[in-house]
Write a protein that binds this DNA or RNA. Structure first.
Lengths: 325, 325
DNA sequence: CTGAAAGCGCTTACAG
DNA sequence: CTGAAAGCGCTTACAG
């Protein structure tokens, strides 16, 4: 069954392809009689016509797609929400958001060439040659991954996350702090940034350096870490995220100790499971909506050739005090 | 800065566009001298040439994209993993996977027209007219959402999930069961299927019908539900998923009761937080790898025009017994 | 108000 | 072994 083209619609409605195009694209300048208009629309509907985006993109040199490239580790709940919101935000600007997961074995180039996006938003860093090639092809390249990236349009200030954790713990009187690192090596870049914030803030307050322990998402690993912290005199632990924090809580419990009495724990992300755990997790929440809007604004600005507006990066973070610290 | 085209490469290397195309596509039939070949490749590299996928798609009538359409509620951890794996699986077949989140305000048609995918995999049902239009455009339409869908290529047997939960609870001697439904209305379709499995299995075993309670992801809501269950004589609760199960556990605790002594709880998904909770959650795990491979196989079969192979749907599910039931 | 024609960049028979 | 040419389906000046 051959494709229905604008020529078919033209023939069916007895007009030229030009007119079909004008009608279907609601062309402003051209004045089409209401009668013709109606005829064309009816024919298009009858034939089930849908314009070829490939042809349109080829002709106009631009699609209306925004490609988001995710890192090759599992998307957390926050990023999920960011993508949902971003999709909604950009829809207002007639842009469709497409997400690519996990940087598989196929080179990124295959992908952006295949979709000809207007903009690519990286939630992970791409290689310099990839970025250059995309820019050469007229694609706006935006990056949101890490704070120091010069091309970053919006980076959640990861060091600030660590600072907030320490501030809360220190103000509660804790002096000897621990840091629970994720075992997953692909998280290392993020973890490093957060830890660096923890270190800085400890130093600034004259506290001893944090005692770092890797913590897997199982009780055994967490128990070992808790023992190490205890013997180092640690009374409060800042965790990479809520999941790791939950593991730490489980470890403390397994040692026959209690949270926050023996060891206080603070996480990051504010996941539902943290609200429901015993004790409920104190955490640093990231506002997905703020992130999504900032990225959407940056994308829109880039497409308009405008300078990226300064995003209120501090506003994303919020301390949520519950029972674990 | 104008686009570099194959004509530029041809000129730069002193050959025709035909030859450029042959070299770049590793055309089998055509014998190109090693010398020419090299010259073309060098010129392409020097110019930073990247072929226009729009033109290629227009010319050949097909792209190498597979579009996954997600429902408009947040992706769970299982689906996340499925997408990662699917991306990997299909990369072996030279296909790139693109994911669309959340069915925003833009009509789906805009999207598939804009990317001209080879296949669309729906993790949510689309309207009949959308599906028809896609099929008319030569796109393979696959659906994975719910068991009864005739177009479903691979549906996790949701009713079976409920059956497994009941079987475990019943074999542990429980007679009066509760079912914890998610408060989120967008989950209703899934929840309904699981609950139906619970009902069926209760009936089959001659147990009274399950007592259904909506449970929000907060302690207050869960506490109210637990009180209702207790006064109905319920001793074990099957929850929609692990998050809801965690809420139920929190509710039981808030009532001053214990899990599983007073109320046993079983979830679905096997999320890390469930492993770490106190007590550790008994749950029904879904194997994301099995799902991803089944979908990948189905997509490949559809593209080859082959009939979809029967997937081993039962193998996806596995009971994980821990301490909560 | 509407039509004929060019051209976006590519691939592929068809001739040499 | 390589080139000239057609055509995928669309939009948009340019003429009427």
């Amino acid at each position: 069954m051959p494709r229905v083209t604008s020529a078919d619609v033209a023939q069916e409605s007895g007009v030229s392809r030009t007119t079909v195009s004008y009608v279907l694209n609601d062309k402003h300048g051209a004045m089409i009689s209401a009668d013709t208009r109606e005829r064309v629309l009816a024919a298009a509907a009858r034939l089930g016509y849908s314009p070829s985006a490939a042809a349109r993109t080829l002709r106009s040199g631009r699609s209306d797609l925004v490609l988001c490239v995710l890192p090759n580790w599992t998307v957390g709940p926050v990023l999920d929400t960011v993508l949902d919101e971003l999709t909604r935000e950009l829809a207002d600007r007639q842009l469709s958001v497409l997400v690519h997961h996990g940087r598989g074995p196929r080179p990124l180039a295959e992908l952006w060439r295949a979709v000809t996006p207007r903009a690519v938003v990286g939630f992970t860093e791409f290689g310099a040659e990839d970025a250059d090639a995309m820019r050469r092809a007229g694609i706006q390249v935006l990056n949101t991954s890490l704070d120091e990236d010069p091309h970053a349009v919006f980076a959640v200030p990861q060091t600030r996350v660590g600072q907030l954790q320490v501030r809360h713990l220190a103000e509660a009187g804790h002096v000897h702090l621990g840091w629970a690192a994720p075992a997953e090596p692909r998280l290392a870049d993020f973890a490093e940034r957060r830890l660096s914030g923890v270190r800085t803030e400890c130093a600034r307050r004259g506290l001893p350096a944090p005692v770092v322990q890797d913590v897997d998402l199982d009780v055994g690993s967490a128990t070992a870490a808790v023992r190490a912290w205890r013997s180092a005199g640690v009374t409060a632990v800042a965790a990479y995220n809520d999941e790791v924090a939950l593991a730490v809580v489980a470890g403390v419990r397994a040692c026959g100790l209690s949270v926050p009495g023996d060891v206080a724990v603070i996480g990051v992300d504010d996941v539902p499971a943290g609200r429901l755990s015993d004790p409920a997790l104190t955490t640093v929440a990231q506002d997905a909506g703020v992130q999504a809007r900032a990225i959407a604004t940056a994308v829109a600005a880039a497409l308009d050739g405008a300078p990226a507006p300064a995003a209120d990066q501090a506003g994303v973070l919020r301390l949520v005090v519950r029972d674990s610290a």
